[in-house]
Nucleic acid binder design. Structure first.
Lengths: 237, 237
DNA sequence: CGGTTTTAGTGAACGGTGTTTACAAGAGTT
DNA sequence: AACTCTTGTAAACACCGTTCACTAAAACCG
């Protein structure tokens, strides 16, 4: 059954424990608490031993980011699947709510993954999460009544590239999109929706609204309403 | 001329040097490089001496945030004043561009002040910056043709409070606003504009757009167009 | 002026960090 | 059994925030 050698199994197990310990420290005590020595302490080993698994503290942090992204994607996907209504608008709303809920529940992780000037690279992982969610949603919204609004010509190049990325992502789900469905106007609205979704969530997580918002959820809902309307879903989807 | 004692002058000078050194370290090498020992080293003193000026490393970081906010506010205000056109739409556009430019030029400062889960408190300083800019703009836009759109009832309480904050901010500039000008619908749009402005800038600074944007400025311009239209300014203001 | 108090700064120390190096002990292989 | 590769340890280095006892000078005051 186990095709790997005994040593490989042990190594994989230790690596799993390292990630788990790092994650626990991040959640319990914040990013600064994720130290090599603290992780090693949780495993009952010494700090230098961790260098057999990761090149540096920074590399471990990067791995942690990827794990977080994967977990978040799984959580969002679960919420998406839990919405049994066929309405695509409902699904979008569900996944947006799940994103906000996740960010508020994991502010440290959110800051590390989404608001860190550290890495220009981890974007791969993040992009795949985004596409994994946006892809199916777009694929299941082929009948949306949305006209092709004109988009500034300067944006065409970037939007066409993004269009191709989205098309590929959807194709992985076995769906082929017509150009009328995935027109540039809609692509642009997808990007703009991400701007607003991210903006609201980050502002809420970091407490940077220009005044104290006593109850941010209705404001989030209100923004979603307008966002969904812009993107071509029915108001009460 | 110098009404302060010699000691007070020296103390003020040292404090100025501390802030300056901290700022330089942040810009040169990132937030993690702003250590007490590094600051002290730049001044030619020892680290414990800094405790005569700040209670802790964190307190110094807070002061740094405030300084950054003040500097940014000054820069934005300068750009705002540099726009000699009477058009309010142009002024809004100018200050938004200035904000983006500042954030891209000072990513470390931006991350520290706007995307740090650290303090729920420094918000005072930040809020005052926001109001210092938004106040005059709203005050000079009294003739905007903007109808009072309905706003979800749940938001009324918060929006009314923000309305009062804005009214006070504008009053400091010697202008009194009528309710028709500063209606709740417009207040809501101001908040939504901040969401989009912040969202775009943060995504660009942190490189978190879902695909590589080759030339983000036109996209920013495009967003501003829609934002200004929503908020009641003319398209080519 | 002389004595006292207040202040800015020092140096040593404590416990913490990431990281490197030399070394030991076990697992796997031949 | 001998050899290699892997996984861990212990010690050390340089750095960090912070505390504490202490000095030297400035400011104050009778």
């Amino acid at each position: 059954m186990t095709e790997a050698t005994r040593r490989e199994r042990l190594r994989a197990e230790t690596e799993r424990e390292i990630r788990q310990a790092a994650r626990a420290l991040l959640v319990e005590s914040g990013q600064d608490a994720v130290t090599l020595r603290a992780i090693a302490r949780k495993l009952g080993i010494t700090a230098p031993a961790l260098y057999r698994y990761y090149d540096s503290h920074d590399a471990l942090l990067r791995q942690l980011c990827d794990d977080i992204c994967a977990d978040m994607a799984a959580a969002l996907y679960a919420d998406l699947a839990a919405d049994t209504s066929g309405e695509v608008g409902c699904k979008v709303r569900a996944v947006c709510h799940a994103f906000r809920r996740w960010a508020l529940a994991h502010p440290q992780e959110f800051a590390l993954v989404f608001a860190s000037p550290r890495d220009p690279l981890g974007a791969d992982q993040f992009g795949s999460v985004f596409l994994q969610l946006a892809g199916p949603l777009i694929a299941s919204n082929q009948d949306a009544n949305h006209v092709d609004e004109p988009v500034p010509a300067v944006l065409h190049e970037d939007l066409v590239r993004f269009q191709q990325v989205l098309r590929d992502a959807v194709a992985e789900h076995g769906v082929t999109l017509a150009d009328e469905v995935l027109n540039l106007g809609k692509i642009y609205h997808v990007v703009q929706s991400w701007v607003r979704l991210y903006g609201h969530v980050a502002l809420e997580v970091f407490g940077r609204f220009p005044f104290a918002v006593s109850n941010p959820e209705p404001m989030f809902d209100s923004m979603l309403d307008q966002m969904l309307a812009d993107i071509g879903f029915a108001e009460n989807g």
